[in-house]
Design a protein around this nucleic acid. Structure first.
Length: 617
DNA sequence: GCCTTTAGCGCCCTCTGCTGGTGAGCT
DNA sequence: AAGCTCACCAGCAGAGGGCGCTAAAGGC
């Protein structure tokens, strides 16, 4: 019936979950040295913690367990259902673990003692290592710590506990006790069930282990109780068929109701024996179905078939609404939800987000909680999902490392000095040191500048070189930009200088940015506000807006030029998109409107006020 | 026994926003 | 000549979509 999962590295010490009244019928009770035990039971996996009344213990750890004098009648037997027992390394002092609890059920008081006398530990070693200890429930009256015999057995990697040689195998509660010692070095691959099966007249524990969390060294011990109903049905146990016993021992009757089967290992229950039997196989490593292509094994033929289909590319489940096909029906259903039905059953309780998959909702919720469970092992970064951590890890290796930190056989020369590096990162860091220095010095004078192009232009003042020639008048210039200005001013009939006027003083500027800069000094409070900004992000946003505004003006000017050439349609087309981008109420005068104003030499342009309005929006 | 359904993990991708660096245009 | 501004780009990270695959339970 009952099973206990004991997590060695788990977090909390839990109480006895349940006590159930056990009918005496079918229990052949033997009393020896004050020990009440049943003689026969279904299988070695079954743990009988038949309880009788006993002396009181005055230490109760669990508040909800009522401490009552144990006065249950001798004839009544009770069954213990043990719950997961968790220890933290520091939480409980070993000597304080002599938990005694009394529970009353159906008028019968049952005394149960946990920990202390019921300790298991996994290996020999200092007792202070609490993580090695596991508690089981032993009736205090029956088993004292001093009387307990150590049973050693080993937790195999195969998740099986094997009885030790010198323990005499059986955990006879009459002879031994709840103090059971687990130790390495015992015979492997031999089930405790098999060894204990010989102890037909002794009360037995069945203990097995399972791997816990992969990220820890946790070992989960499962202690199975005796199933009393099974005792009813099978007063004499044939333990040769352990599997049969496993499948039937967990059957529980509930006063005429339909039978249910309870797994000893987990919380699984089922009303069908076939389901129960199938479930029990999940607690084994039995995977008889082999893929001959990759040698991977599976529990069921269906799983194997699906797997093989991934090799062969067979996709029997085809979507009716598109060309997609899938190996499993579940994939198809999910696909249809994503692509066609848009059904999103998993809804966030904190926002309107909904997802097709539960895992996506779980991931989304982390954006609310701020939880970042995936910690980078090389820096302080933590991610909300595994992929982002994985992507981040590239910055510690792969992309990032190859680009910046990989050794380069070729010399990486500083563009500003003669320094040479073999690591790009070092080069970049070095070049930053040149950022604000006037590293370009003229050979002919004391002139120095930051940029090489500036020095190139300066040198021409010494050489007299004027490489930029106007194609219309053959006038020569040292700088291309000077040629451009000349050309537009004297040879471009369509060139209309854009004029922006300060809304305060009316002064005109050829560049909006200059007008804006002027307006700040012109005493415009709004302009000051716009200029001061509210931090980097705000400034960035302003920059973007200014950039877009400038784009709009440029395109508008282009459109106006085209219009001036008689192509009104082109002019309208050029200005129209920017009108959409900057609605009139947000940026009046921008784009096409600005163009018109410039053309008509009106006073207004794009003002700081407009920008502020945009920022406020 | 078999098929279906459900659940879960993992992987990859896209879109988006932010930041910093750089080069070129412009005044 | 010098400084400002802007466009562009790369890199990184946040958020979410979509699919591949496996495991296990439900149900006939």
């Amino acid at each position: 019936m009952a099973a206990t999962e004991i997590s060695v590295l788990s977090e909390q010490f839990t109480k006895i979950k349940e006590l159930e009244l056990m009918p005496e019928k079918g229990l052949k009770e033997e009393e020896k040295d004050g020990v009440c035990r049943e003689k026969d039971h279904g299988s070695p996996r079954e743990l009988e913690a038949a309880c009788t009344s006993g002396a009181l213990q005055d230490s109760v750890l669990e508040e909800e367990v009522e401490l009552v004098p144990a006065t249950s009648e001798e004839s009544e037997k009770h069954m213990l259902t043990l719950q997961t027992v968790h220890f933290t390394s520091e939480a409980v002092e070993l000597q304080d673990m002599s938990l005694l609890s009394i529970q009353q059920q159906e008028g019968v008081q049952v005394m149960v003692q946990q920990a202390g006398p019921g300790l298991l530990w996994l290996e020999e070693g200092p007792r202070q290592s609490l993580q090695q200890y596991v508690a089981i429930s032993i009736q205090q009256e029956l088993y004292s710590l001093q009387e307990m015999e150590v049973l050693q057995f080993h937790a195999l990697e195969e998740n099986v506990m094997v009885a030790s040689e010198d323990s005499k195998l059986a955990v006879s509660l009459a002879e031994s006790a709840g103090l059971i010692k687990l130790q390495e070095g015992q015979e492997k691959n031999q089930l405790l069930t098999e060894r204990l099966a010989e102890r037909t007249k002794e009360q037995l524990f069945f203990v097995e282990t399972m791997s816990g969390d992969e990220r820890s060294d946790e070992i989960v011990l499962t202690i199975s109780n005796l199933n009393v109903e099974e005792q009813e049905d099978q007063p004499t146990t044939d333990q040769a068929d352990v599997e049969k016993a496993k499948s039937t021992k967990n059957q529980r009757k509930t006063k005429g109701a339909k039978r249910t089967f309870h797994c000893d290992v987990c919380m699984f229950t089922s009303s069908r024996m076939s389901s129960f039997n199938r479930h029990m196989k999940t607690h084994t490593n039995e995977k008889p179905h082999l893929c001959h292509l990759c040698l991977k094994t599976f529990r069921t033929v269906t799983l194997l078939r699906n797997h093989v289909n991934t090799h062969t590319g067979t996709r029997p489940y085809k979507c009716n609404d598109c060309n997609m096909a899938f190996v499993t029906s579940g994939e198809l259903v999910r696909h249809r939800r994503y692509k066609h039905t848009h059904e999103k059953p998993f809804k966030c309780s904190m926002c309107k987000y909904a997802s097709v998959e539960a895992s996506k909702l779980k991931r989304h919720v982390r954006s609310h909680t701020g939880e970042r469970p995936f910690q980078c092992c090389q820096c302080s970064y933590a991610s909300r999902d595994t992929y982002k951590l994985k992507r981040h890890m590239r910055t510690h290796s792969g992309v990032h490392m190859r680009n910046l930190h990989a050794y380069s056989a070729a010399e990486l020369k500083c563009r500003y000095c003669s320094a040479v590096f073999h690591e790009r990162y070092a080069l970049i860091q070095h070049q930053k040191t040149h950022k604000n220095e006037k590293r370009f010095k003229c050979e002919h004078c004391s002139y120095a500048c930051k940029q090489e192009r500036h020095m190139t232009a300066h040198i021409r003042t010494h050489t007299g070189e004027k490489p930029f020639t106007c194609l219309s008048c053959n006038k020569c210039f040292r700088q291309k930009q000077l040629l451009n200005v000349h050309f537009r001013k004297y040879h471009d009939a369509n060139f209309i200088p854009t004029v922006y006027k300060c809304s305060k003083c009316g002064k005109g500027f050829s560049r909006w940015s200059n007008m804006h800069r002027h307006s700040e000094k012109c005493g415009s409070g709004e302009a000051k506000s716009a200029a001061s900004g509210k931090g980097k992000r705000t400034r960035k946003r302003k920059q973007t807006i200014l950039r877009e505004a400038t784009k709009g003006q440029k395109e508008a000017a282009k459109g106006w030029k085209e219009a001036a050439n008689g192509d009104e349609a082109a002019a309208e087309e050029a200005s129209a998109p920017k009108r959409e981008q900057f609605p009139g109420e947000m940026l009046p005068g921008a784009c096409g409107e600005t163009t018109a104003r410039v053309k008509e030499d009106v006073d207004e342009g794009v003002t700081c006020e407009m920008l502020l309005n945009m920022m406020d929006k």
